[in-house]
Amino acid sequence: MRLTRRACVLSLGMLALLPLAEAQQQPLIRSIVRYRLKPDRINDFNAVMRERAALLKKAGSERYFTVWVAQSGPREVGVVRFHQKWSELTQSRDPKMAEHAVAMAALVARTNACVESAERIVDEILPDASMARGGAPPPFVRSGKLVALPGKLNDLLTALKDETMPAMKKGGVTVWGVARTRYGGPVNEIHTYMGMNGWGDLDQPSPMRKALGDEAFQKYLAKMGSLMVSTEYTIYALQPELSHMQPAP
């Protein structure tokens, strides 16, 4: 993963990785910031995030985010936020944080001191290829990065909508999403996410294999392989104590 240092990235507001939030009004724009932390500042980062989440909750801020830690691949922290409109990505002051501006600025400075490098990706959730449950996000997600072959992007998106999503649903998955990269990554890159209870889920047959059966599953793998340059999966664990999540209805 290529990461570029951006000293001001946290001043944009720590962003809410991965499941859709509200079933009634699904946000379709997702902003993800992936952080590499200084090895000796991980505990400091966690402490600051706890304080930040507590302060936002105290003030009644509605700028929600979730924090996730990679359980595979390079150690990184993902902070994710969903948006209804592109204009919401514009940096602006939160009116509800006006009286806490000094305290928040200090937290931002402390957090920046813990960050070695960062990368921001903005993608767009494809609702006709995704499904979500209401309520709290799952404790783990399997995040996928699929890179389509030149000229095969639309075919890959069609397969994810018409074949992958129905099979995932039949296989018992309740949180599944497909997002197309819009900014910060290749235009032929697709992101997927699947809710998990933990590593133990991998001891069972995959939802796709369970839904399709062995023979059809192998045909599915062959078809998907013919549409992609590469596929990469990472497991992330939710850090609820570091997150500022929307209260349950």
Rank of each mutant, 00 (worst) to 15 (best):
R5S: 04
M228H: 04
P240W: 04
P207C: 04
W199R: 12
K57E: 11
V147Y: 08
L149I: 09
A118W: 03
D162M: 11
A105I: 03
L12V: 04
L221S: 04
V122E: 08
F82P: 00
M168K: 13
A109P: 00
G225C: 12
V141A: 11
V80T: 15
Y193K: 06
T234C: 14
R180G: 08
L149T: 04
T174Y: 04
V79E: 06
H100E: 12
K161M: 06
A103I: 06
F140A: 04
G213Q: 05
E124Q: 10
T192V: 14
N112Q: 15
Q91A: 14
E51C: 01
R2P: 15
S92C: 13
Q24R: 12
Q71L: 15
R50Y: 01
D155F: 03
Q26K: 13
Y183A: 14
T192Q: 13
A21F: 01
P166R: 14
L10N: 09
G151Y: 10
A179L: 08
G60P: 11
V122H: 07
T158Y: 05
G13A: 07
A179F: 11
A54R: 05
P207F: 01
E241S: 13
A23D: 09
K145H: 05
Y236M: 11
F140Q: 03
S143G: 10
Q24D: 15
M228Q: 11
M1Q: 12
L55V: 02
A136L: 11
S87E: 11
W86D: 08
A109Q: 09
T111M: 12
Q24I: 03
Q71K: 15
G60S: 03
V187W: 00
R52V: 00
E215Y: 13
T181R: 09
T111I: 03
M1F: 11
R52E: 01
S117H: 05
G171L: 03
G198T: 08
D214L: 13
V108K: 05
I125S: 01
R36K: 14
G185H: 09
R2D: 15
A159I: 02
D214N: 15
A113R: 08
P95A: 13
L157R: 00
M224P: 02
L12Q: 12
L37F: 10
